[in-house]
């Protein structure tokens, strides 16, 4: 895992593009056995430099406010060098967000451990997300703002990156059904959509009203109480 983090999405990942999550994991384990060449390392360093500069600028200026030209300048290289590593700004942005999701998934998976019921599980999962995101609201805003107008390619990447997190939510609800907390005829897909949308809307209050993670969690708890009351077994 550590090695995959370090080497992010180098050569083979990029070229194979639209692989499933499982395949990327398999590939990562192969990658750990093949030492990277010097050239691949240099390329990787360039990518990391660009990603760090881009993250900084997206945080400061939002997605639209940061141009490839600005990012290149901040990373100390030409725009050509940036385009040699990333097809466009959307790809660069999506990779930063995907790295965040990966770290978040680990936090969320840990937070859900030992939850006594479906309510605790969901609050654990979303609470972990709120706690981690509240410290990087400008980046959250940039991602939320981009989400409405993504092109199909970027939308596909985003869906893929989010899948493990969405799976955690689905599993929490499914467990609730299997434990007999939620009615057996519960439409888990519909319910997942609802809790996800309600969770996302919490960021709005954080941005506009300066809410803390605890405020967001308390509100989500009230909303979940209503939503789950309708599907209790």
């Amino acid at each position: 895992m550590q090695v995959r983090r370090l080497f992010g999405a180098t050569g083979p990942h990029r070229r194979l593009g639209n692989m499933t999550y499982m395949n990327q994991k398999t590939l990562a384990s192969i990658e750990t056995r093949i030492p990277p060449t010097r050239r691949a390392l240099a390329k990787q360093q360039t990518r990391q430099k660009i990603l760090a500069a881009a993250r900084e600028l997206f945080t400061q200026r939002g997605y639209e406010g940061a141009t490839i030209r600005d990012i290149a300048r901040a990373a100390g290289m030409s725009t050509g060098a940036v385009f040699a590593s990333f097809a466009d700004k959307a790809e660069l942005f999506d990779e930063i967000v995907a790295a965040d999701y990966q770290a978040l998934e680990a936090d969320m998976a840990e937070a859900v451990q030992g939850a006594a019921n479906v309510e605790e599980a969901l609050l654990g999962l979303f609470g972990a997300a709120y706690r981690s995101h509240v410290h990087q609201l400008p980046m959250v805003c940039a991602a939320m703002s981009v989400g409405w107008t993504r092109d199909p390619k970027s939308a596909g990447r985003s869906r893929e990156a989010l899948r493990p997190i969405v799976d955690l939510i689905r599993a929490a609800l499914q467990d609730g059904v299997e434990r007999g907390e939620l009615a057996s005829h519960t439409d888990v897909r519909l319910l997942r959509g609802i809790v996800w949308e309600v969770y996302l809307s919490g960021y709005r209050a954080a941005v506009y009203e300066g809410w803390t993670a605890d405020d967001m969690i308390a509100r989500l708890a009230e909303q979940l109480k209503i939503i789950l009351a309708g599907v209790r077994a």
Binding site: G147, W148, R150, D187, L190, E197, A229, V231
Partner: peptide, 29 residues
């Protein structure tokens, strides 16, 4: 947040149908 479906090609009537299901579920609670 249902407008997120529009990037995937949802029409006004798709949004209404989705919202109807969500509303029914929410008001059940």
């Amino acid at each position: 947040f249902n407008y997120l479906q529009v990037a995937g090609g949802a029409t006004a009537s798709d949004l209404t149908q989705r919202m109807d299901r969500e509303l029914k579920q929410f008001c059940d609670g």
